[in-house]
């Protein structure tokens, strides 16, 4: 019995600690994401997709299908895996119907991210039809970033941003490291699923 007492003390202390200390935020990350609804003017630029084909951005984003847009780059370390996991998860939920939803990722590192690199990234996240990754000239990419109020002078300063296009053409702006389940919930909330 003697030998179990110190262990029991620790357990009691631990239980006490649990009840007193509230759940704390994660290491250096925002606690929740911010959700706002905005109106954006999409510039008429021609970008290039993972197959090297020219894509008119306005046509892609105003196709009538549900659309989501995020800004990432292929060698990104921390933020992009979280955002892309959200896309992978959504596509998994859509099953064979994945092309029903247009998921768009736009690179903020057009220097490095040529079509071959874009294709490899999509393969890494098991992307299915419906998820396109776009690059373009630096000036055109800058214009698109400005249009979405998501301009970063350098990719190292980028912030996690995802946009969902509402049925009325307005954009739901989700700022923060949104988890896969939160992203799915937002998508459903927009009435698009």
């Amino acid at each position: 019995m003697k030998y179990h007492l110190p262990w029991l003390n620790c357990l009691l202390l631990f239980a006490l600690v649990l009840t007193i200390c509230p759940a704390s935020p994660a290491v250096a990350a925002p606690v929740t994401y911010k959700r706002t609804v905005e109106k954006y003017q999409i510039p008429d630029v021609i970008l290039t997709n993972q197959f090297g084909k020219k894509v008119r951005l306005k046509t892609l984003l105003e196709s009538g299908r549900p659309v989501a847009v995020d800004f990432i780059y292929a060698t990104c370390t921390t933020i992009c895996p979280v955002l892309s996991a959200g896309y992978t998860n959504l596509q998994r939920k859509l099953g064979p119907d994945s092309a029903r939803v247009q998921l768009v990722s736009i690179t903020i590192d057009p220097e490095n991210d040529n079509p071959r690199v874009l294709k490899e990234y999509l393969q890494r996240y098991q992307a299915r039809p419906g998820w396109d990754f776009l690059t373009g000239s630096r000036k055109d990419i800058d214009r698109v970033m400005h249009a979405f109020d998501a301009y970063f002078r350098d990719k190292m300063d980028h912030k996690p941003l995802t946009f969902i296009r509402g049925a009325d053409g307005s954009w739901i702006r989700l700022y923060g490291l949104i988890s896969s389940s939160e992203f799915l919930a937002e998508y459903k909330k927009a009435g698009l699923l």
């Binding site: 008429d44 630029v45 021609i46 020219k54 008119r56 000239s137 000036k139 055109d140």
Partner: peptide
């Protein structure tokens, strides 16, 4: 689309 793309290159 080709015209807009080439004009993008030209103007940029």
């Amino acid at each position: 689309v080709m015209g807009q793309s080439l004009c993008g290159t030209r103007c940029n």
